[in-house]
Nucleic acid binder design. Sequence first.
DNA 1: TATAAAAGTAACAGTAACTGTTACTAATAC
DNA 2: GTATTAGTAACAGTTACTGTTACTTTTATA
Lengths: 145, 145
Amino acid sequence: MANRSQQFSVAVHILCFLEFNKNDRTTSELLAMSVNANSAVIRRIMQKLTKAGLITSTLGTNAAITLVKQANQITLLDVYRATLENNQDLFIIHQDTNPTCPVGSKIPHLLDGVYSKVQATMENELSSITIDQLVKSGIVQGGNP
Amino acid sequence: MANRSQQFSVAVHILCFLEFNKNDRTTSELLAMSVNANSAVIRRIMQKLTKAGLITSTLGTNAAITLVKQANQITLLDVYRATLENNQDLFIIHQDTNPTCPVGSKIPHLLDGVYSKVQATMENELSSITIDQLVKSGIVQGGNP
DNA sequence: TATAAAAGTAACAGTAACTGTTACTAATAC
DNA sequence: GTATTAGTAACAGTTACTGTTACTTTTATA
């Protein structure tokens, strides 16, 4: 399978934080405190979210990080695709199987078909969940970040 | 996410091979040729399949590897669970978030709920596919392994 | 205009996991 | 007793992620 990183989870965390704190200014320092990670780690993930058009940020004093799209228009599939970039495949298929073996020669293509279906199902489920839903369902409004 | 290894794919390969070649003797050398990998790699994966009760093997001259269950009783979920062992989680949640932050304190539990559902969906799909189906659908019978 | 704040970014070490490989041990058929 | 074959351990190489430091760039404001 593709990826053992926490980046997807942290990215969702960041986006939820931005939505929750949208009436105040959010910095990478503030995010780093919430996530409990180094601010450079946060900025590293922010780059991917920026590239994907999910967030935007300004520089300098009073710099702020904000959502580009409305929170109910950002799905977990968007975040998944933004953070995983190159390795979005759920499963890895071993290549270079024996081409002269009736099993070995067909396994890669066979697995490809199966994995595509499984992944499509998963992505479909991810696309049904929005950042807005997460914030509204799980995070009580009104506290201090 | 959990695992970037090819072991799941190779395990499926092994089981398909055993089913395809069930009328003849299968050794780890033969499997290694089909997979195009070192036989020790094959045996390493075999250990997990043995532990999971999917295959059995004998030692010595004329040693053979065989399926324990019928191929139509072995699902990809069985293989998934056998090969991934400790790290079956599709997604990894960052722990140690800030307990005093209304977002950070709730994100882990929130993500846990979401990921469980997504994973259950995926596992349900894996459980609907058997080794028997794969062999019958994708591998032409009658060739030489 | 100088300064401070904050994002952008590069570089490096540490860690973990998988792969490939070698080589040994143990069991078993002949 | 010998050859075969699975079981297993050990090691190096590779890759990717995390944590960290530190520098550069941009920008608001005093």
